[in-house]
């Protein structure tokens, strides 16, 4: 009787569960596994030396360097903006709060190509600030500054989105406790707030980093594709591929794919740590009430 009830509770018959699993896993294998494998197969199609040569090519190297540089510049801004926005939203009540939350999501809603175009219209030669920039000989579009700006725009929601729910759940009791104990604002932030949000922050940084390095559309519009100068890794892959340099293209792509795998691993570790921490926070091995 009870055995039957248990089987009922788990629900679906075996064949249906198997079918769902085959569909799910099959889809993953077909659309994620096979392409990923293909990238590495193609990259090594002409053997290891060809792969090494392709990666040590000057233009590929500068593309990698530029990609890393943009990520390094963008991430600190993202951290500051993300923490500030999440702090404001989670711990204060003010007018326009819901507007701010909506605005934070804007970069997710807008197509990256449109973002690129907007920055062209603002900073391009015919753009709003174009003449002024030209008069002062400041080069924004088709140069590093515009690429950093669009990447900032695209990646700014990641950290904030990760932190807002976390900080809302944590409330502001601990911060108030710190203040009442005599802590200054910075002491409160570094000793109480930051340790509480560190894993969420790291998670956001990992996601933002992956996006910053992988961004194509917006960067493509404002970069001008100047080889060795304004070519990031994703743009470089496209150029090489269009020149029928399959080994070069896939070698460069394999670097991006590798980056994705590292991101995935880091993300999993951080997620595991976060879960571990929350489990510790709700641990049930309470010592007995005494005295």
């Amino acid at each position: 009787m009870s055995a039957r009830a248990t089987r009922r509770a788990t629900g679906e018959p075996l064949w249906l569960r198997a079918l769902l699993m085959v569909i799910g896993l099959g889809f993953l294998l077909l659309f994620l596994g096979v392409p990923l494998l293909a990238v590495f197969v193609e990259a090594f199609a002409a053997g290891w030396p060809a792969y090494r040569d392709a990666l040590s090519d000057g233009e590929t190297r500068s593309a990698i360097a530029l990609t890393v540089l943009i990520a390094l510049v963008v991430l600190p801004f993202n951290v500051v903006f993300g923490v500030a926005a999440a702090w404001a939203i989670a711990k204060f009540d003010f007018r326009g709060k819901s507007l701010l939350i909506t605005l934070i999501d804007l970069p997710f809603a807008v197509s990256p190509v449109v973002v690129g175009l907007v920055f062209l219209l603002l900073f391009g030669a015919q753009g709003l600030f174009g003449p002024w920039l030209a008069a002062h000989e400041i080069k924004v579009v088709f140069a590093l500054p515009a690429m950093i700006l669009v990447t900032l725009f695209i990646t700014c929601p990641f950290i904030a989105r990760e932190l807002i729910p976390l900080m809302q759940v944590q409330g502001k009791d601990e911060e108030e406790a710190a203040l009442s104990l005599g802590a200054g604002a910075w002491q409160m932030f570094f000793r109480v707030t930051l340790p509480n949000i560190k894993w969420g922050l790291l998670y956001g940084v990992i996601l933002a980093n992956a996006r910053a390095m992988g961004e194509f559309g917006a960067v493509s519009v404002v970069s001008g594709h100047i080889r060795g100068e304004t070519n990031t890794l994703p743009l470089h892959v496209e150029i090489l591929y269009n020149e029928y340099n399959a080994v070069g293209a896939f070698a460069a792509a394999s670097v991006l794919a590798l980056l994705a795998l590292v991101t995935l691993a880091a993300k999993t570790i951080v997620e595991w740590r976060m879960r571990h921490e929350t489990q510790r926070l709700t641990a049930s091995d309470l010592p007995p009430e005494k005295g």
Partner: peptide, 20 residues
């Protein structure tokens, strides 16, 4: 006077201990 300069001890309903 800001909270940190009042020298008051405050105890919260939900303890507000520093969890880390």
């Amino acid at each position: 006077l800001p909270a940190r300069e009042r020298n008051v001890g405050f105890v919260f309903q939900h303890y507000a201990l520093f969890r880390h």
